[in-house]
Amino acid sequence: MGVTARGIGLFVAAAALLAAGFRFAYPELALLGAAGATAGGYALAVAAWRPRLAVVRRAEPDRVGRGEPATMTVTVHNSGRLRSANLVAEDRCGGVPVPVPVLRLRPGKDTTARYDVPTTRRGVVPVGPLRVTRRDPLGLVSLSRPYGETVPVWVHPRVHPLSVVPTGAGRSLDGRVDSVPHGSITFDSLREYVVGDELRRVHWRTSARVGELMVRENVDTSLPRLVVLLDNRAVAHPQRVAGLAESFEAACEAAASVLTAAYRADLPVVLVLVASEEAVSPAGAPDSEVVGPLDRLAAAGLGADTLDAMLTRLRGDRLGDTLIALTGPGGRETLGRFGALRGAYPSVVVGVFGAAEPAQPPATGMVVIDAADGAAFAAEWDRVRRW
């Protein structure tokens, strides 16, 4: 509850008039002071009354790409029996106040406000809660209360189309790549039929060619093939303008492009961040709301240097057979460390963003792509002929 300057003046004057009236036996002064005190008490009672309002908000859509339009619709319903007069309401959209018309809202009626959500920057835009300010008619006291919950709007990185995607070393001998990341069965070899083999495993085309029944031998491939490693260390992206590292934004766009291309090609893919995601996720991005890798990219930020631990984990877990590492100008010194993972990942691709000079790939056979932004990365990516 806040007392306005007018209210402070009234309370001080009422106290002074009451004191002077009783001290010097002036009933007129005491009457004026009592009137001022009564007005102040009425103002406190009016401001303390809590209106019964229900707030429903809907984002259309709640997940967009950077620069795409998104709108928020806020509906305020007066579920009380009294008219909620003298109310001032404003919504919070990414820290910016947005006025919502609720003045003299009748009982049982609704009022709706619709406004655009800023999507010029990647991230999670928290919208809400609605703050309703109750004031007395004399403007002496005001009280603000929150209504409704905070709803996040996920602004994903831009996605640039990629024409090709490396499929790694674990290709199926049937001429396709198995798209099931866990517990999948992939063809490995053929052998002669023995009593007890299931007939559905017989490879009839080969059997007809060799004149004997041949059955498939399958292997269980339980690991994703593509691993996208996003270097979100603060030391890898030292150049910032207004708190924004353009090289990191470009790396996020490249990661989103690779992930989208892999999904469209039905290829298993996993996203890994160098720094801990718990330490860099912004407010308004609860873990329960994070659904997919693009949401993780929207919530990603710069964190501590934990590259050694992450490289050790990647080398030990062997999450796939193609590693795509995306770093900034500060990561040029770690190209050799990325290349050292070729023992665990037969194919290693490194994207370097925002570097003043082209990076010199170490003699490890890995592919290095220098790019200024996500669009340039996509163009250079499509020029690669050998992974």
Rank of each mutant, 00 (worst) to 15 (best):
V74K: 07
T364D: 11
E212W: 03
R205F: 07
A265F: 01
R6E: 02
A376C: 01
F338I: 02
D188E: 15
G21E: 07
P126M: 10
A372W: 09
A261V: 00
R106C: 06
A256F: 06
A13D: 01
A376F: 03
T38W: 12
L307H: 05
E28W: 12
A372G: 11
D373V: 03
D116W: 10
V258I: 12
A43N: 05
R240Q: 12
R264G: 01
S79A: 14
C252T: 03
A20G: 05
A363E: 07
G374R: 04
G170P: 00
L213C: 01
R171K: 06
L326M: 02
S281N: 06
D287W: 15
G2R: 15
A344R: 02
G148E: 01
F22Y: 13
A261D: 04
V270S: 08
F22N: 01
D220T: 06
A245E: 11
T111D: 13
P362L: 04
P157F: 13
S347I: 14
A15P: 00
S172Y: 06
A34K: 00
G365K: 06
H160K: 05
L53A: 11
D308V: 09
Y345W: 08
A47P: 03
A39C: 09
A256I: 04
L87R: 05
A340S: 14
V141H: 09
P224A: 12
T112R: 15
A261P: 03
R158V: 07
V56H: 15
L130E: 02
L323M: 06
P137A: 10
V151K: 07
A255D: 00
D174K: 12
R63C: 06
Q360D: 04
